[in-house]
Computed example of a mutant assay.
Amino acid sequence: MSVLWLHWVRGIVTVQVRGGQPEELVNRALAGGLTLSSIRWTSDGKLQFEVSVSDFFRLRPYLKKTGCRIHVTGRAGFPFLLDKMGKRKFFALGIVLFFAIIYLLSSLVWTVEITGNSRMSDEQIEQAAKQEGIFPFQWSFKLADADLLSKRLTSKLPDASWVGVEKKGTRIVIQVVENTVPKTADLNTPRHLVASHDAVVTQILVEKGRPVVSKNTKVKKGQTLISGTIGDGAYTQTVPAKGVVKGLVWYEYNITSPLVQPVKVYTGEKKTKWYAVLGSRLLQVSGFGKTPFEQSEAVREEEQAGWRNWKLPIGRMKETVMEVRTEQRQLTADEAKQAGLLQAKAVLASKAGADSVVRDEIILHEKTDNGKVYMKVLFEVEQSIIEEMPLVHEQGD
């Protein structure tokens, strides 16, 4: 591909050979280091080939030795394009101006989009962005690096834990991740921490309050784990109990896992489409027509033109559309069993919490019937077992 591109830049001349010894001409020229391509006989029995402009003028001595004459039938390449443009100066000037205007327009920031904010107002973020030079009709090459802008905006917005800045063509997208504000209970409201499940306590750490149970204690759902009542007699007082209590909880699952499961397979067939990128716009230049695949996936690779540290708003994008098909994979009973257990554990993790750990699994019953594996499984999970219960004072008369 690079060789063809180089020939196009140098210019390519298509010639027909008349008279003399055409085969001898080709042999002598190739032996002399000339590059001839697309050598073929025409329908009227004349030899035709393509040669670069520089090698075209080196053909003269070989023509004399073989008694051949040549006739130019075609010209292509950059030198001839320049010659045509020179004859049409106003047209050439128009093309240059067109691309110059496209470049200037695509170098402007047309819109600033803000996403991810809920508590902070758009006006607050826009004001901070404007201080960093991010606003409509700003030259994009005047903006600082995206990482630097991200750090500066994060420091200017105290309610944001992270701010991302991304340039997409003529758009600047500011993505905001706000600080997580935990749900805070009234610190002055006394409460107990009670068991959320029947469990066996494996860990207890008390920050505030009085522990009522100890490690390896079996507790029932609703039983007090950390009391919000501390002291004794006249010195009794209530506090908001706080701490960590983990325990072993048991879950029973009925699992059904098929022996035949669908699997996505790439066939190796693909179609490639090329696009010219001008700012935020795409112009398809090859790979036209409908995609011939019933099922497919597309992968895009974009290349942006640049010079040194400058990124130009032009480039190209390659889109590869790959054919896929769904096949039915036959599993063994053990493979189906493991797949079912993994799926059950994923569901269990979402239910028990991200910090939960499956300590043991006991298969109570297992059978294979009608192309499926059926199991009844008991999972032993270590997880947090606390929930809050307000402590209500009983006022006497």
Rank of each mutant, 00 (worst) to 15 (best):
I363H: 02
T368M: 00
D369I: 12
G353E: 11
Q330E: 15
V358G: 04
H365E: 15
A339P: 07
V347C: 00
R359V: 14
D334T: 12
E361V: 03
V347G: 05
N370M: 03
A339W: 01
V357C: 06
K367D: 06
D369V: 10
R329V: 04
V347W: 01
K337Y: 00
I363M: 03
D369Q: 15
D369E: 15
L331E: 08
A349L: 09
Y374S: 02
S356N: 09
H365C: 01
L348D: 07
N370T: 03
Y374R: 05
A333K: 15
L342P: 06
D360Q: 10
L341Q: 08
V373Q: 09
G371V: 07
Q343I: 07
K351R: 13
L348C: 09
D360A: 09
Q343R: 15
G353I: 07
R359Q: 15
L364K: 15
A339E: 11
A336F: 01
S350Y: 01
I362N: 14
V358T: 10
V357M: 11
N370F: 05
M375C: 11
A354L: 11
V357D: 06
Q330W: 06
R329P: 01
M375S: 13
A336Y: 00
L364V: 09
N370A: 07
S356G: 12
L348S: 03
D360P: 02
D369H: 10
A349R: 15
A333N: 12
Q343E: 15
D369F: 12
D334V: 07
A344H: 00
L348N: 07
E361Q: 14
D369M: 12
A354Y: 14
V373E: 11
L341V: 03
R329H: 03
L331W: 02
D355A: 09
D360H: 02
A336E: 10
A339H: 06
N370I: 01
A352K: 12
R329L: 07
A354R: 11
V373W: 02
K345S: 03
G340T: 14
R329M: 04
Y374Q: 06
R359H: 05
L364N: 14
D334R: 13
L364H: 10
Q330G: 07
E361L: 11
K367A: 13
V358I: 08
R359L: 13
V373P: 04
A339G: 13
L364W: 04
M375K: 09
A346P: 05
E366T: 00
V373F: 00
Q338K: 08
L331F: 04
K372H: 04
D334S: 14
T332R: 00
V357T: 11
A349Q: 14
M375A: 12
L364R: 15
T332S: 00
I362Y: 06
E361K: 10
G371K: 09
L341E: 04
Y374G: 00
S356R: 07
G353K: 13
R329A: 09
Y374P: 01
A349S: 14
A336Q: 03
L331D: 04
K372L: 06
K345G: 02
V373D: 10
K367R: 11
E335L: 13
D360R: 05
D334F: 02
R359P: 03
E366C: 01
G353N: 11
N370S: 05
A354H: 14
Q330V: 15
V358A: 08
G340Y: 01
D360I: 03
